[in-house]
Computed example of a mutant assay.
Amino acid sequence: MARWEPDARGRLLRAALDLFAEQGYERTTTAQIASRAGLTKTTFFRHFPDKREVLFYGQPMLMELATNGVRDAPADATPLDAAAAGVDAMASAHVEGQREYAPQLGAVVAANDELRERAAFKRASIAGAMADALVVRGVDERVAALAAELGARAYYTAFDRWIAPANTEPMPDLARTALTELRAAAAALA
C-alpha cells in the first residue's frame, strides 16, 4: 500500500484490528501497525498517542456530539429529551462502513482487561459530558446524571444492535428504539 494513499487513520485502524486478531493486542507494536498500513511510525503517532487509542479514536468526537446535541435541544425539552438529542447526534455520526470492523473491534476490547477498563472509562466520560451539558441547561445534578446514564445506555445498546450481522436498521432508529425501551423500563420502576 502506497504511503500517499488517503485515509491514513482508517488504514491504521484496519491494520491494527487485523494484527490484534492475528497475534493479540499485547504482542502487536505500533511499528507493526504502521508497517501493515503502509505508513511510518511517525504517521501513526500523528494520528494516535498509542496503540490503545486506535480502538477508541472516535470517543472525543462522540463526547462533543453528545454535548452539542444536549445543548442544542429545544429550550422546553425535558432532561431525557435533551439527552435523547445528544444520543441522536452521536448515532447520526455512524456510517455504514463502520459496521464492517465494529465486531472485530469489540472482540479485541472484550479479550483484554486494560481495554475493557478503557471502554468503561470512555462510556462514563460520554455520560458525564451529557450530564454536564444538562446541568448547564439548569437541570438538577441528580436528574442530569440519571438522564445522561439512560442516554449513554441507549446509545451503547443501539450500537450493539447496529453491529449485529442480521441488522438492517440505521443507527439513529436503533438509538431511538433503545431509548424508548429504557423510558418504559424507568416508568415501570414507579
Rank of each mutant, 00 (worst) to 15 (best):
Gly58Phe: 04
Ala73Glu: 07
Val136Ala: 14
Ala127Asp: 05
Ala144Asp: 07
Ala111Arg: 13
Leu55Thr: 10
Arg183Gln: 15
Pro170Phe: 01
Ala145Leu: 07
Ala85Gly: 09
Ala184Lys: 10
Asp140Ala: 14
Asp113Phe: 06
Arg142Val: 05
Gly106Ser: 13
Phe48Gln: 03
Phe121Gly: 14
Gly106Val: 02
Met90Gln: 13
Asp72Cys: 08
Asp7Gln: 15
Ala107Lys: 15
Leu39Asn: 09
Glu53Thr: 09
Val139Lys: 05
Asp160Pro: 00
Ala133Asn: 06
Arg99Leu: 07
Leu182Phe: 11
Gly151Ile: 01
Val87Gly: 03
Ala185Glu: 14
Val143Cys: 07
Ala148His: 02
Ala166Lys: 08
Met90Ala: 12
Pro60Thr: 07
Pro6Thr: 10
Ala190Arg: 13
Leu150Lys: 05
Phe56Tyr: 14
Thr40Met: 04
Ala119Trp: 07
Pro103Met: 13
Leu134Ser: 02
Thr42Tyr: 09
Leu182Cys: 08
Ala131Ser: 14
Thr30Val: 11
Pro74Ile: 00
Ala34Glu: 03
Arg142Leu: 06
Asp18Ser: 11
His94Leu: 09
Val136Ile: 12
Gly97Pro: 00
Ala83Ile: 02
Lys51Thr: 05
Arg176Ala: 14
Ile126Asn: 07
Phe159His: 14
Ala82Gln: 03
Leu13Gly: 04
Phe20Lys: 01
Pro74Asn: 08
Pro170Thr: 09
Gly138His: 11
Ala77Arg: 05
Gly151Pro: 02
Thr30Pro: 03
Lys122Gln: 13
Arg153Gln: 11
Thr78Tyr: 04
Asp132Lys: 12
Thr180Ile: 09
Glu100Trp: 11
Gly58Arg: 10
Ala66Asp: 04
Ala148Val: 00
Asp88Lys: 10
Glu181Gln: 15
Ala77Asn: 05
Phe45Asn: 09
Arg176Ser: 12
Phe48Ile: 01
Ala144Leu: 02
Arg27Ser: 12
Ala185Thr: 13
Asp88Asn: 12
Thr157Ile: 00
Leu105Thr: 09
Ala84Thr: 06
Ala129Leu: 07
Ala73Phe: 02
Leu174Arg: 11
Glu169Ala: 15
Ala152Met: 03
Gly128Asp: 06
Ser125Gly: 15
Thr43Lys: 10
Thr29Ser: 15
Arg118Val: 08
Gly128Thr: 04
Pro170Lys: 10
Arg183Lys: 15
Asp132Pro: 00
Trp162Leu: 05
Glu117Cys: 02
Ile163Met: 14
Arg9Gly: 07
Leu62Gly: 03
Ser92Met: 12
Ala84Gln: 09
Ala37Asp: 03
Glu64Ala: 14
Met171Gly: 06
Arg3Asn: 11
Arg71Trp: 05
Ile33Arg: 00
His47Asn: 13
Asp160His: 13
Glu26Ala: 15
Ala164Leu: 08
Ile126Pro: 01
Arg176His: 13
Glu5Gln: 13
Leu146Lys: 11
Phe45Arg: 07
Ala15Trp: 01
Gly10Cys: 04
Ala152Trp: 00
Pro165Glu: 11
Thr28Ala: 08
Met61Ile: 09
Tyr156Ser: 09
Leu115His: 11
Arg176Phe: 02
Phe48Met: 03
Pro49Thr: 05
Ala93Ser: 15
Gly151Leu: 01
His94Met: 05
Asp113Leu: 10
Asp81Val: 03
